[in-house]
Structure formats: C-alpha cells, structure tokens
Design a protein around this nucleic acid. Sequence first.
DNA 1: AGCTACTCCTGGTAGC
DNA 2: TGCTACCAGGAGTAGC
Length: 312
Amino acid sequence: MPELPEVETVARLIAPDLLGRRVEGFEIPWARTVGERSPAQFARLLEGRRCVVVDRRAKYLLLGFAAGRESESSAWLVVHLRMTGRLVVEPRSGAASPHRRFSLLLSAGPRRPLAMPAPGPWRGVAAKRAPVASQPASAKVRLDFIDPRKFGRCLATEDPTEVLPALGPEPLGEDFKAESFFAALRARSRQLKPLLLDQSFVAGLGNIYVDESLYRARLHPEMPSDRVSRPKAFALFGAIRTVLTEAIEREGSSFDSFYRTPTGQPGSYQHQFQVYGRQDQPCRACGTTIRRTVVGQRGTHFCPRCQKPARG
DNA sequence: AGCTACTCCTGGTAGC
DNA sequence: TGCTACCAGGAGTAGC
C-alpha cells in the first residue's frame, strides 16, 4: 500500500514527465475520485496552467500549477493513492486501463527540461538515482490516475491546506526531533500501533512501516505510549527514520498486485521485511514464530519474544 | 481523549 | 468448475 516511501518514489519518478507541461483538458471516468469538483471547476482551476511543482506531504502528492509565465503555483492537484491508486504518464493516444478514474491531458513538454524545484523541507532523503522522463518531451501525454478499489482521491484546489487534514511532523523532516517525539509519546496514553498510524501524530506511516519500525525498536504494538522509556522512544525515533530511508532507497514495497512505480517497476523493500506478512515464520533475530494479531482493526505483525509488552 | 464500529470498494482467495 | 462469503486496507466520520 502506498505509504510515505512509495509516495515519495512516485513524486520523484513522475516529476520529469510532468514539469513544464500544460493542462489542456481532463477526463473523469469515476466522478467520486475528484470529490465535489465539477468538470467546470476543474477547467477554471487547472486548464491552461503549467506544472511547476511535484512534491509530497505525508502520503499526499502535490502537483503545483502556475498561470501564464509565472512560476508560483496558483492551483494544485492533491492526490492520495490510498490502497491501490497509481499515477502513470502515457502517450496521449495510448490505451487506458479499465480502472482509470481520472486523467489530465497534458501538452508537449518544454524544449529544455524544467529543473526540479528545491524539494520540500520534509523530503529528508536524497534520491539515489536520477529520475528520467519516460515520455519524449515532444509528445502530448496523459496523466492517468488508476485505482481499482476507488479509494484514492484527486482534488483540485487553490490552496492545499484547505483539502489536507491536520498532519503531524514529517518523520524525515528537520523538525522531527527525538526529544519532542518522546514528549509527544508521553503526552498520550494510546497503544503505539494506532498512535503511529494516526496521521496527526506523525505523518506518512502506514500499516507496513509501523510494524517494521516497532519491531526494529523492539516495542510491543499494544504498549501504551506513555510507558515507553526515554531510550526506547529514541530507539523508535531512529527506527522510523531508518526504515523509511531504506524503503525510499529501494523505491518502496510491492507485493501481490499492489503498488508499482510510475514506470510499472515494483519496489524492492518487501525483501527487507522483518515482520510484515511474515506470520508463522521465524523471527530473523531469535527464531521465535512471528505472530499476526489485530490491533485497532489493523493486521499487526510482531515477534512475541523480541517485542515484549512490558515497560520498554 | 481515546475507543469502537461503520463506510467506502473490489480483487483475491478460502471453502464448499 | 462455479458459486458464495469474506477479507484487507487508509482515512473519514459517528457514537459512546
């Protein structure tokens, strides 16, 4: 499922195919994908504008569009992939997926590629490989939002803050500090698993990376957050950042039919999973059988020996 | 504040 | 084989 590393990968890889292209139209095969917006509102907000920003905040992709020759975004397409959403850039006349829910029709690209704008302060990790355009700049293209389960959303807005919910700190950002993370854990008394999944507490983690982070920090998913010791809180802080960084370096996690990069490639972080999806298999550290339970309505994977429920 | 349940959806799979 | 039933999952919302 697309979490922070997958969305980050999509942003990086899709940027060279979007930057500098102009919106010439759109198609909305599944209306609920675009929320309340009518085609007329889309036209007013986006048509004729040029893509100048491709960024990410939490699990949201932010595509910024500028009017005329300006370089400041005055309209945004805010995309959430949820479970099964994908963004793909296709030749304009190429065949569309039966699960296509929304498309932007884009002009040919600029003669000289638009420089990637300075990444948002929440990026945190440098790209390992330089993203390359998949389509020639001379071709008109189509940005397809493909989403079999229809959970994803593409929202057009003049101001992203008006469609984004309250979001906690970016775990790879500069303002995410171990000391304040410890204080924040102390200030609540929720089970770690649902707390870390709460996007207003820390932004961008989902089911996979929460399980992997808790395992790495040797913390039980049901432990109340205010019982986590200072050293353990620091360990969890480091675990979250390490897991996310390594996942970005491997371009995210893919399994079953879930999640592909914009070029259709799977990520490879699934090969690094220590607990997620490894129920009934031995813990790589101690050999104990990994267990799967349900915590807060979410499938939860942990090692009962490494992750003791006692005070951490 | 924090919990539980429900909703949105469909592809995949387990069970018969 | 063909059918039904159920489930995963993020996030928003409602009710307690």
